[in-house]
Design a binder for these strands. Structure first.
Lengths: 217, 217
DNA sequence: GTCTATAAAGGGATAGAC
DNA sequence: GTCTATCCCTTTATAGAC
């Protein structure tokens, strides 16, 4: 019908070709769950309900498809918008301890989510073959988190609420205390997923320790 | 010659078949540098200067070869014997700060070595397909390190040199401060290798912070 | 145990019709 | 852009001689 063709054109305008989206979607799920080598282009085409040449009409080869998919995934995975620290009003008026607690819970929640662990595994596992992907992940992930928290710590040091001579290092200590060894255990499949309650407890403990180091006395 | 046949028999007795060793050696290097999927049995046979059926006469299939190789690598990689804390005399008589510094330098040196990063990448990348490998790595790696340091901290808490209510947590804070984000940066290929001097500095800083938290006042 | 040779399957990628 | 059909190569794994 003419109607459906019209809809298709609309879809292409707003969100590119629907088949391309189906390919990207299928490739994302397969690559994240099995890595680069274990996934065939046949499998991607089948899952996207598309033929193999259609895949190759949108992406030059398997590597390009993988790179494209994973780059997008890394950039979206941070969830920076939802982080309490990203809200300027909150960052100014919420009590420091509460804001750091909420930020820690957000960060740890993102990092320990099953999706993030899948991304972590694939990126680390393929960092040799796709060096740019590893660097990209590091920038959008850990580096970005550290920068955000370091900036806040720096402000609080200037205002006298904390006594810190190296805000970047303080941020890395705080994050290090929170994520180690939980992230490692998850990535190794050596522990069960982390519950909300456990996350709150981990963050509260780390924060208490953090304050022992940096609170003015 | 009869002599060489005799040597071969000797070698088999002391260290199994030399061809098997060549296979394991070649497979180790290839798997660690390229992961499971990117390495073919042909490549392993060629590097070991052996024919493919010889590989299959020693290992049931590629998975078994990979598992065997990686398990051995993980168990040997800890280098527990060389750790200052493993020396009971040193652990008793060396001053605490010096011993923790040396232990930290050893641990961080092992963890950030190119070989360890290779192992880390491969294990994490294949943890989905080889779950036992991931758990094995975690036990022989991070868990073992934490246990060792936690035990020492516990002793020093009993003797009054430290004030610690949860030695395991204190150990994980200390190690977390040391390894994050260095290990992550290396695994992502987002930073250069760590020099001896830098390791000493990282450990010294973390230790200073650790003492701020746990030293008796 | 070790080789040469080969089977059997699956992989990435493309030609050509529509 | 999309499909059917296919090419060609590599891969894992084995048969059979020595």
């Amino acid at each position: 019908m003419a109607g459906s063709a019209f809809d298709m054109n609309r879809a292409e305008e707003t969100a590119q070709s629907p088949k391309r989206l189906a390919i990207v979607d299928a490739a994302t799920k397969l690559f994240l769950s099995q890595g680069f080598g274990a996934v065939s282009v046949d499998a991607i085409a089948a899952k996207a309900q598309v033929s193999k040449p259609t895949v190759y009409s949108h992406f030059e080869n398997k590597e390009a498809l993988f790179s494209g998919v994973m780059t997008g995934v890394c950039e979206r995975a941070g969830g920076q918008e939802a982080c309490p620290l990203a809200n300027e009003e909150a960052a100014r008026y919420m009590p420091m301890n509460e804001l750091l607690q909420k930020t820690g819970e957000h960060v740890l929640g993102v990092i320990t989510s099953p999706e993030a662990i899948e991304i972590f595994r694939v990126v680390i596992g393929e960092a040799e073959r796709f060096p740019q992907l590893g660097r990209n992940f590091f920038e959008f992930g850990p580096a970005s988190i550290l920068e955000m928290i370091g900036g806040y710590i720096s402000k609080k040091s200037n205002s006298g609420e904390l006594v810190v001579d190296d805000p970047a290092k303080a941020a890395h200590y705080l994050v290090g205390m929170m994520v180690f060894p939980v992230q490692m255990g998850l990535a190794c499949g050596a522990r069960d997923p982390v519950s909300k309650d456990e996350i709150s407890e981990i963050v509260a403990d780390a924060l208490k320790t953090f304050m022992k180091i940096y609170a003015p006395r």
